[in-house]
Nucleic acid binder design. Structure first.
Lengths: 225, 225
DNA sequence: GCGCCGCATGAAAATACTACTGGTCGAGGA
DNA sequence: TCCTCGACCAGTAGTATTTTCATGCGGCGC
């Protein structure tokens, strides 16, 4: 079950994200309408939660654009305004439900469940590996860091997937040779070093914290610090 | 559009009834749960509006019974209690929305519209896949780019549909072979490459942004950039 | 300080993969 | 029957990836 939250207030976004993740939902956050729209167009979600007051494109507008693309995804609007005119606007834009801030998370959860209930059976358990602001989607084989798409080659992706599946563990070169290169003899080569270097350039360069670490004499490990 | 209201307080029932009738809805009233259930079983409704506190069978119970009969009709619960526990009970019983008394009729109307709209959407199969200025209509199996009709052969269309249904995901050749060509063995051929080439010529040539992208060693992906 | 070991990295070389053209085959319509 | 068109195949040119190679750096033991 995958949710897209479009919310520009970081504290609230993080609060909602944690709540849903604790309930086993997968949730992605966009911080403005533009970003929300492009995420929406690149992925498929089971529910959209849109704040009304957003930079660039507001929630109503975003909802209308989404409806123009794809009529069936449920949309829940969040707003600080408890006016009927506002609600009318929301529903006219194509929202399915409307929640007024401040709200208890339980209430949001209830309404989210009610909205997604119908599509629940179609819940393909999409697995995403996450570490800090890095995300690897096993299904679509795509990787992002800080919301930015990162293009990897087949080998690079395969290596990263293996490292992330073993997050926190020190992975030896022998192990990598077997699992990623599918060889069980020592080829006397430094391909792995080369690929680690590639991954560092693509993933870690210009970002904090660094995620790929060398453990001299043992191998490599991915962790947040 | 036909609504069943189950409400034991005559004044409120009449108020709601008039409101919906003014909006062009057809509305029937039951004054207790028993009567509501039997009306529900005798007719078909587009929406149920249930008060929680009812004689004989309360709203939660009624909702549960209705769900046992027919999982699809939208249910909106009305209650005097604004507690989370109560809302939880309502949603658990299978309600789709929840409104706390007192409420403005406009609010009820909005929510009723939202709930019935979803059903209307689900049945109206007017589904269109869109990406940038490309449109694929699943129903009529027609494709346009920048408003211009594009004629595709059966295989070309089928391939494009599969790619668009997986927008943003990297789709492997194996997957395409299975889903579009319906083969589950490797044919050792390059038909897919050839068809991708055809689609590129028909869809992307002379347009921006390019939508069909190659991910060497992994497959193809449709995205806007 | 010196040499060695392990690792990082840039670039060249080898290899694998993909795009596209042009052609064959076969089914269906005229 | 012949023609047309879509589906598929093969070969080649072109590209991107993968691997190797050479070099440099930093730590460590002697």
């Amino acid at each position: 079950m995958k949710i897209l939250l479009v919310e520009d207030e970081p504290k609230l976004a993080s609060f909602i994200q944690k709540g849903f993740q604790n309930e086993g939902y997968e949730l992605e956050v966009a911080f403005d309408g533009q970003m929300g729209l492009s995420l929406f167009r690149q992925n498929s979600y089971d529910l959209l939660v849109l704040d009304v007051n957003l930079p660039h494109i507001n929630g109503f507008e975003l909802c209308r654009l989404v409806r123009a693309d794809n009529a069936h995804v449920p949309v829940l609007m969040l707003t600080a305004l408890d006016s009927l005119e506002d609600k009318t606007l929301g529903f006219e834009a194509g929202a399915d439900d409307y929640l007024v801030k401040p709200f208890k998370f339980q209430e949001l959860l209830l309404r989210a469940r009610a909205l997604t209930k119908r599509n629940a059976d179609a819940s393909a358990v999409k697995r995403t590996l996450r570490m800090a602001d890095l995300e690897l989607n096993l299904e679509s084989k795509t990787v992002t860091r800080a919301g930015q798409r990162i293009d990897l080659t087949a080998k690079e992706y395969s290596l990263l997937e293996h490292l992330l599946l073993n997050r926190g563990k020190i992975v030896s070169r022998v192990d990598i040779t077997e699992k990623v290169w599918e060889l069980d003899f020592d080829t006397n080569t430094n391909v792995i070093d080369v690929y680690i270097s590639h991954l560092r350039r693509k993933l870690d360069k210009g970002h904090e914290p660094k995620l790929i670490h060398t453990v001299v004499g043992m191998g490599y490990v991915m962790r947040e610090g």
